[in-house]
Design a protein around this nucleic acid. Structure first.
Length: 241
DNA sequence: GCACGCAAAGCAATTACATCA
DNA sequence: TATGATGTAATTGCTTTGCGT
């Protein structure tokens, strides 16, 4: 963004936006008695900019977003990369096209993290801002993690249920043996087969014995950490941290 | 070698918009 | 048509990591 535009935005934000910015709900409340001056600040000074200006300029997240927005705002009017606002000055939410989603998914399946070069090239390819590509990957990683958590949760739930069943069965067996022992005083030695239950851990995809579940869980966490570390390393080789 | 500050990147939590039933 | 549920883009605030001084 050019220096002039930046100055303009800042002045508008301080003069008109800060203190006057309202959430959507507040906006709705105010619709009965709209303040004319608000429209200007909404249209020219997005929420995060107002917040960062109002709070503290050292907020790095906001500055990061601002930097990239400023960078891409150079292309305002030339394509659809700019922030689209509706008539109320509220940000219109982007919906990715099927093609964009497909390409992002393909890219994600190859590598779930981005390096700056890949981010830029994807953004260029998809006609999106680099920040939007970055956000998509972040949200995608979160979705993947959530899915995995659900799978893990399901697995442990089932494991818990079958362990309960096994426990009940063994208790019953013990009772039977005890009563048998009372009736027949003979010191008969019965070898009870070790209760073994094999199941597949969804995360590490190992066969684990039921009584080793806790150990497996610990190992599982370890494995995940190793994967995370190696991913980070790979990212590092790609040029990311 | 150690402490410090800074920037970049990632993540969790949350917000807010769009869509659908 | 209004409304609640759901999916997801976007924001915010924090932590971690690497690098220069």
């Amino acid at each position: 963004m050019g220096g002039d535009e930046e100055t303009c935005n800042t002045k508008l934000a301080l003069g008109l936006g800060v203190g006057e910015y309202a959430s959507r709900q507040e906006m709705r409340k105010k619709e009965d008695h709209p303040l004319v001056c608000l429209d200007l600040s909404f249209a020219l000074c997005p929420k995060q900019e107002v917040a960062s200006l109002g709070d503290h300029m050292e907020n790095r997240s906001s500055l990061r977003a601002m930097d990239e927005d400023e960078e891409s705002e150079r292309s305002i009017g030339t394509n659809n990369k700019s922030i689209i606002m509706n008539k109320n000055g509220l940000r219109k939410k982007l919906r990715l096209t099927k093609e964009q989603s497909t390409l992002l998914e393909e890219s994600f399946s190859r590598h779930s993290t981005l390096n700056p070069a890949r981010k830029l090239s994807l953004a260029e390819q998809l006609n999106l801002k680099p920040r939007q590509v970055e956000v998509w990957f972040q949200n995608r990683r979160a979705r993947t993690k959530l899915k995995q958590t659900e799978v893990d949760c399901d697995f442990w739930k089932k494991s818990c249920e079958s362990l309960g069943d096994e426990n009940r069965r063994l208790k019953k067996e013990l009772q039977e043996l005890k009563s048998l022992n009372k009736n027949e005083a003979s010191p008969l030695y019965i070898q009870i087969p070790k209760a073994t239950m094999l199941s597949m851990c969804p995360s590490c995809e190992r066969m684990v014995e039921a009584h080793h579940h806790n150990q497996a869980a610990a190992k599982n966490t370890e494995d995940l950490n190793v994967v995370r570390k190696s991913n980070k390393l790979q990212g590092g080789f790609d040029g990311t941290k």
